[in-house]
Design a protein around this nucleic acid. Structure first.
Lengths: 239, 239
DNA sequence: AATCAAAATATGTAGTACAAAAAAGAACAG
DNA sequence: CTGTTCTTTTTTGTACTACATATTTTGATT
């Protein structure tokens, strides 16, 4: 009898399941759209939580969850108890928050190791486009400070020298990207350490090339300088 | 008289203001620590919201805000109404969410344009380390499909060919990184279009080098292939 | 024992309440 | 009339309760 209409709830599936999204998801999207459409600029005050909640017809809880996400992604900032403002765009801000070697599979770690080599090898042309005499002088300072026999300071030397190279590109994003990736490099290099042998081209050699050599010389020099790392990459490949 | 003890509330500042963080901030940090300390693996079920709230002594709201952030960063996933699990680590997942050219300053856009050139130029050595005969064949297929006179499909050709190059590195992170950056390249290239002239080295030429040339040949070839873009970068620099 | 229904769980959402900090407004003194 | 101080208002931060809904578990029935 009544069993003749079982589970009629299933009929309700058709239309509304277009939104497989939670309210918080939808509000997050709405807010993103809104910020773009209204062409907000960094520093602009956003609507109040209650206004948003009212205008979207959701509870303040939901709005806060959505805002909390945008905050986590670095898209907005809260000014204490004053209100929220659109943050200065920083595409690497959220990147930084998930960049933890401990929660990363080894494969990704190796990928990043390879990515580093790609970046370093690709630096040459941009470097030659932007380098100045002052840059060269600063590199000299860094190189003369190096203690070639100190294994302890080798990594420090590496960071100083190569970091300066990135800085010379005048590419702030690239610079920051590299500095974020650095800790992960170290992580892989720690594995590599036992196998490590200095390449045939030193920092001083690279600097000399940078002073008087061509871009192609520099590329070749960098390749030789990175030879131990490439060897390590080859080693990883064959495992 | 009573005015001698004004605003005694201010005394309460001392100890607790070590935490300039909101409860949600603190819970977020606690959860991150917890996941690492407990060495959770992807797919593991996390404690229930109420358990977390109880054990940390905060309201469920706060816990939900914190979890919502971790979700936004791609660190956890919600399995419908079953519970939450640690997500497969994906360092680029959160990156993707903030990668919108419309909310990005031009300077960052230019940085990314430069970053692309660095990546492409750095590809050579890793490419030669990993390339296979099958890769070459697939590149051939791509090249032969190109219609050299069609401005309309030029960008499509570019994407197919260069995308394949990235894929050949066997570096999944690098591949994904490039594909995320692609839309931004297009955005800058749109500005560049009026000035664009094809480089002296075509995709077919690059492929030929890849087949029979040395790594150094390929670097030089790529540099020439990218010449128009480098010229555009030079142009941007002088503005 | 297998199947189907009912209860227990856990997330998703709404709503209310209040504390605290900042801003805005009002009152007062010079 | 102006500047300072006090009060009120606004807005975020947090807690608590309640209920809907989907999933799992348990239990009952054949």
């Amino acid at each position: 009898m009544e069993k003749s209409k079982p589970n009629t709830k299933h009929l309700a599936f058709d239309l509304p399941k277009l939104h497989n999204l939670t309210m918080a998801d939808q509000v997050e999207l709405k807010l993103r759209e809104y910020f773009k459409k209204k062409a907000f600029k960094p520093g602009d005050l956003l609507p109040k939580e209650l206004e948003i909640a009212a205008s979207l017809g959701v509870s303040r809880n939901i709005v806060r969850e959505a805002l909390s996400r945008l905050k986590a992604l670095g898209l907005i900032e809260t000014k204490k108890k004053r209100g929220m403002v659109l943050a200065e765009p920083d595409i690497l801000g959220s990147f930084e928050k998930v960049l933890d070697p401990l929660i990363m599979p080894d494969s990704t770690l190796y990928d990043i190791f390879g990515l580093r080599l790609v970046l370093e090898m690709g630096l040459a042309d941009v470097l030659y486009m932007y380098k100045t005499d002052q840059d060269i002088q600063e590199l000299e300072k860094i190189v003369t400070k190096e203690k070639p026999d100190s294994e302890k300071f080798r990594i420090k030397n590496e960071i100083a020298f190569h970091g300066k190279l990135y800085a010379m590109t005048n590419n702030h994003t690239l610079m920051r990207f590299q500095s974020l990736l650095l800790p992960l490099f170290d992580y892989v290099v720690a594995f590599e350490k036992d196998h490590y042998k200095p390449g045939g081209v030193s920092h001083a050699d690279l600097l000399q090339i940078l002073r008087e050599g061509t871009v192609e010389d520099f590329r070749k020099g960098m390749r030789l300088h990175l030879e131990p790392h490439f060897a390590w990459l080859e080693h990883l490949k064959n495992k």
